[in-house]
Design a protein around this nucleic acid. Structure first.
Lengths: 246, 246
DNA sequence: CGGCCCATTGAGGTCTCTCAAGGCGTGTGG
DNA sequence: CCACACGCCTTGAGAGACCTCAATGGGCCG
């Protein structure tokens, strides 16, 4: 790793939970100053990840939570016959690794989709602190519950029989999450390939490609490679429910 | 509620976590005697539910965990346009309600598929006890993680493009869970209708019906209404990966 | 400039959905 | 006890959407 800018490194290392921009989304919300510092010692700031870097592998016994600070990840499992199923895409403020706490190792793998940074929280240490800080414990349950609810949206999307609906639902979901981070909800920079997106949606790559083209023709989107501009949110919402019935 | 058999009620009420047959699967595992009793006071034994009874409704602010003691439930969400997506079927020993802890109410509804009984654990009380009993807190995280991992299997199944694979995966999953309860893994008593199963699998009822027929013709299953006898587990496993390529 | 990867577009096939009719078991009432 | 109705499931025929296979286009990097 040939010397990245030391200034960047310093900023990464010095950043604490207290002044993290994600504190509202992350664990520390509603935790007092002293307790927050205690948590701070538990959190490892990981070196930035390059695209393709593996955060953890399926089966690894390394119970820890990971919070995406910047960039994005995908989680996926590998099926017996070798196929892959992508389980989720995760952007800043979202938790990854919840399935690795049960004592049987991770049930999926996580990989960076682009240059990303995360916080790592070893489960044992977190658990120990949580035992002493009721507020943290409560917050932790809440966050896990929130991620659980988010996870449930995946089958809802895959239950849609029309491919157009699936893509529309995905785009709306991503848009909404970006808005929660204070970004423009109508300018999407997809960090995943068409192949990865297709896999996530339960479709093949050609179908996804055709859907993007059709949405562009319909005037709903402006698509330029991985940049998607939502031109007509209302139409997108309609497509999410009923596919195109002109 | 016109007087049910008092004997039954008594048995229900007297049953404690200590002598519950599900203790290995449920929360109390690896918790000592005193602590276990403390937990016991938190757990509500609910009156048995009839088929169709609602355990909780989407949006309800009533944070609690529910453990299926006997029978089975389905969880589902209702989409804006009125369609339903079934998120899971839950049998004895499984947790329901994890998505209701985040403070925004439940994100799905839960309904009994047959005569069932459950334990209800109010979240606040559970959280309070967990704060004092580190072992329980740890176990609670583990159980939540386990359910999280289970949840992730749904999109894996729905990602399969061949309907035959989806049904085969479902049947194998159910078989495995029944085996974990000490039941015959090859005798399945489906508590859900074809309609509900089709919805869960992301298919239509006719397709599911045809799949059962075909599996029976192939000699993999013996199907009699909602009773399914797995005749050839190996063949079922093959179907779960690659659909029929005779 | 050439090779490579990713994405797009086209043509054809097939699996699942849609629409429709018919069985089967259950429960109700005569 | 039988007739009938009802819900649930099965089976059939046809249509449509997505998948498969194949070729082309367009950045990106050496």
């Amino acid at each position: 790793m040939p010397s990245p800018s030391p200034i960047v490194n310093l900023r990464e290392l010095r950043q604490s939970c207290a002044d993290c921009a994600l504190s509202q989304l992350c664990l520390p919300a509603s935790i007092g100053g002293d307790d927050l510092e205690r948590l701070d010692h538990v959190v490892k700031q990981r070196v930035p990840l390059e695209r393709g870097a593996i955060v953890f592998h399926e089966g690894a016994h390394h119970p820890a939570l990971f919070i995406v600070r910047s960039g994005s990840l995908k989680t996926y499992t590998t099926l017996p016959e070798g196929d892959v199923q992508i389980l989720g895409f995760h952007i800043a403020g979202e938790l990854v690794g919840l399935d690795g706490l049960a004592g049987n190792g991770f049930r999926c793998s996580a990989e960076a989709l682009e240059h990303s940074s995360l916080c790592e929280v070893p489960f044992d240490a977190l658990s120990a602190v949580a035992a002493k800080v009721p507020g943290l414990q409560h917050q932790l349950f809440r966050v896990m519950s929130r991620e659980f609810g988010r996870e449930q949206q995946h089958p809802v999307m895959m239950g849609r029989k029309q491919a157009m609906s699936r893509l529309a639902i995905f785009l709306r979901s991503l848009s909404e999450r970006l808005q929660g981070l204070g970004h423009d909800p109508y300018q999407l920079s997809l960090s995943m390939s068409r192949q990865e997106l297709a896999n996530y949606l339960g479709l093949v790559i050609e179908t996804v490609s055709r859907l993007f083209s059709r949405m562009q023709t319909l005037g709903v989107l402006k698509v330029d490679r991985r940049h998607v501009h939502i031109l007509d949110p209302a139409a997108l919402a309609t497509l999410a429910e009923k596919p195109d019935e002109d």
